[in-house]
């Protein structure tokens, strides 16, 4: 060839040694704890542990609470996300900041806040107890509430981003075809943001499943009632370390599954 050709391979930048050392340490920091969990798992008795009433109860309660929290988050969070994406009203940005605050708030603070609002002497708690006979703190409903409080923001911001990035002219087209706003929402908007709805719900569910701080603060730690898996792990670590490890492994498997399921969303770009 007459013309000089470029090397086919893009030249690799050579890394300075301190970067290599620190990056390796950083990676090891993530890998070693996982390795510890996997290597210390009593694989032979793992199935047995998984079948123990203690573990099963926590597992069942965790599934019930996290799925309920996700359902509530969908019912309340999607309209909230839609309002943030499509409406302009005074105080919108403040309201939006408040609803995503639990993402950065220490969960235990969230639990305290929930107690002060819905606890026996809380803002609404007293009224709820006396007029409706509803007691939220230290009940399964309370655990669900704590998980919803912490996890719903993940759904709201994911769905809001989906709504913002969709081409709203599809909604225009639907309206000029005679569809009411309600029909447009159900038959056009929500189907078009389905990937965001699914991603948001999965993120929300994963967060709810792992919730610890707000749950133990607001709902306490009663086996079968409010003792979800993370709580059980924490307690079992002293009384029955093998059960703690097995429960941890289950939670790890769920997290990995979520990560793999959403890889297109997070890792696809690389």
């Amino acid at each position: 060839m007459a013309l000089p050709t470029r090397s086919r391979r893009t030249p690799r930048p050579s890394a300075p040694l301190p970067i290599v050392i620190l990056a390796s340490a950083g990676a090891a920091f993530f890998i070693i704890p996982l390795l510890g969990l996997l290597l210390r798992t009593p694989w032979t008795s793992a199935w047995q542990q998984l079948g123990s009433p203690e573990v099963l109860t926590a597992l069942r309660l965790s599934l019930l609470a996290s799925l309920s929290a996700t359902a509530i988050a969908l019912i309340l969070g999607v309209p909230l996300a839609w309002s943030f994406a499509r409406l302009t009203f005074p105080g919108r940005s403040v309201l939006r900041a408040l609803t995503v605050l639990p993402m950065v708030l220490p969960p235990v603070v969230g639990g305290v806040a929930l107690l002060l609002a819905f606890g026996r002497r809380g803002l609404l708690g007293g009224w709820l107890a006396t007029t409706l006979g509803v007691h939220l703190p230290f009940t399964t409903a309370g655990a669900i509430m704590a998980e919803t409080f912490v996890a719903m923001p993940f759904l709201v911001i994911t769905v809001e981003a989906g709504l913002r990035s969709m081409d709203t002219r599809f909604e225009d087209a639907a309206r000029t075809l005679g569809a009411s706003r309600w029909t447009v929402l159900w038959r056009v908007t929500l189907p078009l943001v389905r990937p965001s709805l699914i991603a948001g719900a999965v993120l929300c569910w994963a967060r709810a499943l792992g919730e610890f701080g707000a749950t133990i603060t607001f709902a306490g730690n009663f086996p079968g009632r409010t003792q979800t898996m993370p709580l059980a792990v924490y307690l079992a670590l002293e009384s029955n370390p093998e059960a703690a490890i097995v429960l941890s492994l289950v939670l790890l498997a769920v997290s990995l599954a979520v990560l793999i399921g959403l890889r297109d969303r997070w890792l696809g770009a690389s």
Binding site: A173, T176, L177, P191
Partner: peptide, 26 residues
């Protein structure tokens, strides 16, 4: 009214027939 768009704006999640039926269903 009926509005035909430059870039069609057919609903991607519906079949061609469901797209045409959309206005009638609405």
């Amino acid at each position: 009214i009926g509005l035909v768009f430059q870039d069609y704006l057919l609903f991607p999640h519906l079949s061609v027939r469901e797209n045409v039926a959309f206005g009638l269903r609405a």
